[in-house]
Design a protein around this nucleic acid. Structure first.
Length: 573
RNA sequence: CGGGGAGUGGCGCAGCGGCAGCGCACCUGGUUUGGGACCAGGGGGUCGGGGGUUCAAAUCCCCCCUCCCCGACCA
């Protein structure tokens, strides 16, 4: 492609609203343009990157035996009502009404794929099967941000597997999981498949494919010693067993008017002559399950609660419906008598007295002891893991890594078939059975931003060869004044193209500095610079964008040198 | 959805009651050519929208819209 014909202009300044490095550079280098909040267009360069990523995913899915199909973005709302996700995903569903009928623009396609393959996966003879689609999806994001990272319209590659039983599902899962790993290897970015929480999509075992990046909205815990890794939503920590007995004074009440936060309670109790820190407080968090049943969750006061699956925080507005609950003064004492379960984090199981609420307004207690002053029904993992916590597997310190979720694989099992009556097949004995599903998504349109984010340097973008829009950037210096430069540039442009190399040819009539800076900004991995100085002595300059390392090669050797450098860059992935 | 900020030419910005400007980009001509050149000329803006105040509004007041940031939320 000649740059005089390319539809793209580099910008010296990024739009003021672009915050993320990847966003700024992709706009400045002429890859994308914003159309609306969270809605982007891909210019030819950006589209080429997108298509390369798509191709990698497609090739690896195909190699894993998955079959590509295409599902509709426009879906009748009945599908979503049957699965119950008009409720669970209400906040992100884009709904629309057409001539009196209600539709949603699909944010994901579990319902649609089940509706689609119904009569084609009807027998155990048709299983196992894995299908996938690469297409645009929609989410009514409350707050789109970071350019391509969080958008309202985006492209996903989603695979769905169907199996007769759980064992089969696990095999299918493994197969797609491995395909994911190969795809990410080829993308040239560091990634970690981490244990994750299933969120609104449901299901059991699942992994997120995390790419460490400064711009990340997620964190995962990583043990540098044993390799344990899990999303912050799912990570556990190891707690030393400290059972035993110790003399704790009798529980005593302290007046704490208005101290409804941990912070203010600590301050007031300390001032009353009992010095303490938030770590000495027992945070008593009230949650409710799907049926409205209450439970309290105990964690040390300096830790953030992570409720177990199935529980949500009790809404402040309905606190008053339970006269024995006093916001800011809730305590575990006597909860069992109120039919409220008491769950405590493992770290609470230590022989010591705790400071906590008194179940009366404006009052706390000190020296509350488990087994004497209150009972715990069950100990479990209830805190959000923090940097420096101990690994649950080996006890070494964990570190939290900021990262972007680039893919997610789920073993859904029967989650959807249980709700959707058409998700059935005839088993070998003639009975009707539900198939076990897996679903697997890669954020295709998120990946150009992720890759750009982790590979860019102070000069601009810096693509891995596998996703770069072109492999070689041929920069002609003064070619309009030096016929030799023009001739050799043209020759190399056409011979490299004939050799199957993807070449972007900067044939613009611009100052050398502008062209060289643009080449660095655009980030194509190999630069071939042809100018009068070199040509006078029969050489051209070959540069690797990644490390700016350059060497001169003779005009005669240029083509083969470029071809081998491209091969070398592929080999380095 | 809560808090904060911003809307002036394609992009970045100034102007804040009295003729709508600057830099980049774009067009024409000329000079220049190995790390973001220069000279001369030129095109392009209902100043986000509506209402109001005023002799006069980009500028002051009211309402609305859009966008960005922080938070909440999150396949």
């Amino acid at each position: 492609m000649r740059m005089t014909r390319l539809v793209a202009k580099t910008l010296r300044e990024a739009p003021a609203d672009a915050e993320a490095v990847s966003h700024r550079l992709l706009v400045r280098a002429g890859y994308i343009r914003r159309i609306s909040s969270g809605v982007y267009s891909y210019l030819p360069l950006g589209f080429r990157v997108l298509r390369k990523i798509e191709s990698i995913v497609r090739e690896e899915f195909d190699a894993a035996g998955a079959q590509e199909l295409l599902l509709p973005a426009l879906q009748p709302i009945e599908l979503w009502e049957e699965s119950g996700r008009t409720k669970t995903m209400d906040d992100v569903l884009m709904r629309l009404e057409l001539r009196g009928a209600d539709f949603v623009l699909g944010p994901t396609h579990e319902e649609a794929v089940i509706a689609t393959v119904g009569q084609d996966i009807a027998s155990y003879r048709d299983l196992p099967a894995t299908v996938y689609q690469i297409q645009t999806k929609f989410r009514a994001e409350a707050r789109p941000r970071y350019g391509l990272l969080r958008t309202r319209e985006f492209i996903m590659a989603d695979a769905y597997s169907f199996d007769v039983d759980q064992e089969g599902m696990r095999a299918s899962y493994k197969s797609v999981f491995d395909a994911y790993c190969r795809a990410f290897d080829r993308l040239g970015v560091t990634y970690y498949p981490v244990e994750a929480d299933a969120g609104s999509i449901g299901g059991d075992v699942n992994h997120e494919f995390m790419v460490p990046a400064a711009i990340g909205e997620d964190h995962f815990a990583l043990c540098g010693h044993c390799g344990y890794k899990a999303n912050i939503e799912a990570a556990r920590r190891g707690v030393a067993d400290q059972q035993g007995t110790v003399a704790v004074p009798e529980m005593a009440e302290i007046e704490t008017p208005g101290a409804t936060t941990i912070e203010s309670a600590v301050e007031m109790i300390t001032r009353s002559g009992h010095p303490m820190t938030s770590a000495d407080m027992l945070k008593t968090f009230v949650g409710r399950d799907d049926q409205g049943g209450l439970a309290v969750f105990l964690v040390p006061g300096d830790r953030q609660v992570r409720l177990p699956r199935g529980y949500t925080a009790l809404d402040a507005a309905i606190f008053g419906d339970h006269p024995f609950l006093h916001r800011g003064y809730v305590a575990p004492m006597g909860m069992q008598a109120r039919k409220v379960k008491v769950y405590a984090d493992h770290s609470v199981r230590v022989p010591r007295g705790w400071t906590t609420g008194a179940n009366r307004p404006d009052t706390h207690v000190i020296d509350a002891l488990i087994g004497r002053d209150f009972e715990v029904d069950e100990f479990m993992d209830l805190v959000v893991v923090e940097d420096g916590d101990h690994c649950p597997q080996c006890g070494e310190p964990l570190s939290l890594v900021r990262s972007v979720e680039a893919g997610h694989t789920f073993q859904l099992g029967l989650t959807y078939p249980e709700k959707i009556s058409s998700a059935r097949f005839s088993a070998e004995d003639g009975s009707e059975a539900m198939y076990f599903m897996g679903c697997y998504g890669i954020g295709v349109s998120r990946l150009p931003a992720v890759v750009a984010e982790v590979t860019a340097d102070e000069l601009g973008l810096c693509w891995p060869i596998s996703v770069a829009p072109y492999q070689v950037h041929l920069v002609a210096i003064s070619h309009l004044r030096d016929p030799e430069v023009a001739r050799i540039s043209e020759e190399l442009y056409s011979s490299l193209g004939a050799a199957g190399i993807e070449v972007l040819f900067d044939d613009r009539d611009l100052a050398p500095g502008v062209k060289l800076n643009d080449a660095d900004l655009m980030g194509i991995p190999v630069q071939l610079v042809i100018g009068p100085k070199g040509i006078a002595s029969g050489v051209v300059e070959l540069k690797r964008r990644k490390d700016q390392s350059r060497r001169e090669v003779t005009v005669l050797d240029a083509e083969s040198a470029v071809i081998s450098l491209v091969a070398e860059l592929f080999a380095e992935l």
